[in-house]
């Protein structure tokens, strides 16, 4: 029984680590979609860039891929953010002026381009076989401290990001972003450089997505193009943000952990089914997740945590809910 409880504790650590990594991705998307209204359907692309960047700069030398720099994990995380940000800046310069759904199509395509480049540039990335033996922080500590250490690192990152983004949201910068999202023409008329601000939000969000990808690469110690598939690296993040509540940082974090918990624990239930169901039960799990999403969205149409609007004057008129 003790062993059992210890096991459940360790699983909880794994669950929250993954949930925390998804929270980093969701906070990144929240800057883009929640604050500024940029429809980025290419989360997986920036996730992959971050993951591969840190894998290359921190892993030991191998003849299979570029690398051997052996930098510490912290340097890898920074490099991942910088690489994602630089590439996002280039992408932003080209397509940030596209309106919502056109931007979605462009970013979706760009993410697929990144994934295919990573899959085919075998000299740098070892192609579809991926990069193995990525160092993991605290991995030399005895169990459970190795896993707990990773969890604390992820939580520390989430906490720092949350505090910074809450400050950003309340700052003049955050208010301009909301203005751009709600009424771009008005923001422009007020003298704001809308293009530059949209790029800023895009780059900042992408940097966080790169950070999330880098944390994931260190957590699973292995990265391959399959890990940047749109379903689990883009759409799942969107679901987390929409359920948690767009434009609300608390909602982004809560949504990520809630949806990941549902996604992961559903398998514990489906694995209870008789062995003849072994194959079918995996699909039943996906159905369970879909059902949970339906129930939550029925009950909380605007997300569990709605956007908290700031008021400059008590007389400010009632505003419509964000889409």
């Amino acid at each position: 029984m003790e062993q059992q409880l210890y096991g459940i504790f360790l699983y909880g650590v794994f669950l929250l680590t993954m949930g925390g990594i998804y929270a980093v991705l969701t906070l990144g998307l929240n800057i883009q979609w929640g604050f500024t209204g940029l429809f980025n359907a290419g989360v997986a692309g920036f996730f992959a860039i971050g993951a591969y960047t840190t894998a290359i700069v921190t892993s030991a030398a191998s003849e299979r891929h570029l690398g051997g720099y052996g930098l510490p994990v912290a340097a890898g995380l920074v490099a991942a953010m910088v690489a994602s940000a630089v590439i996002a800046w280039g992408v932003g310069r080209i397509c940030i002026r596209l309106r919502a759904d056109y931007l979605a199509i462009a970013t979706l395509g760009i993410a697929e381009i990144f994934r295919l480049v990573l899959k085919n540039e075998v000299w740098a990335t070892n192609g579809p076989r991926g990069i193995s033996l990525i160092p993991k922080p605290f991995e030399h500590l005895p169990e459970p401290w190795n896993q707990v250490g990773m969890l604390l690192l992820v939580f520390a990152v989430v906490a720092v990001l949350y505090v910074l983004l809450e400050r950003a949201r309340r700052s003049p910068w955050g208010r301009v972003m909301a203005a751009i999202r709600e009424n771009e023409a008005a923001a422009r008329a007020a003298g704001k450089d809308v293009e530059r601000l949209r790029i800023e939000a895009f780059v900042l969000g992408a940097a966080l997505m790169g950070l999330g990808g880098a944390l994931m690469a260190h957590h699973i110690k292995f990265i391959e193009p399959n890990a940047a598939e749109p379903v689990s690296a883009t759409f799942l993040v969107w679901v987390m943000l929409v359920i948690g509540g767009a434009a609300n940082n608390r909602g982004a974090v809560f949504g990520a952990i809630l949806i990941w918990t549902i996604w992961s624990t559903a398998e514990i239930l489906s694995a209870r089914l008789p062995p003849e169901w072994a194959v079918k039960s995996a699909y039943l799990r996906i159905f369970l997740v879909g059902l949970a999403l339906q129930i939550i969205l029925q009950r909380f149409p605007g997300g569990i945590f709605r956007e908290r609007r700031f008021r400059t004057a008590p007389s400010s008129s009632t505003r419509e809910q964000p889409p």
Partner: peptide
Amino acid sequence: PGDSQCDPKAAVDAGAKLVNVEQ
């Protein structure tokens, strides 16, 4: 059963359940 989905992220999650919850 554990569903690895041919994806290392999912496999780590499935493995954590098998090793810790299912023992």
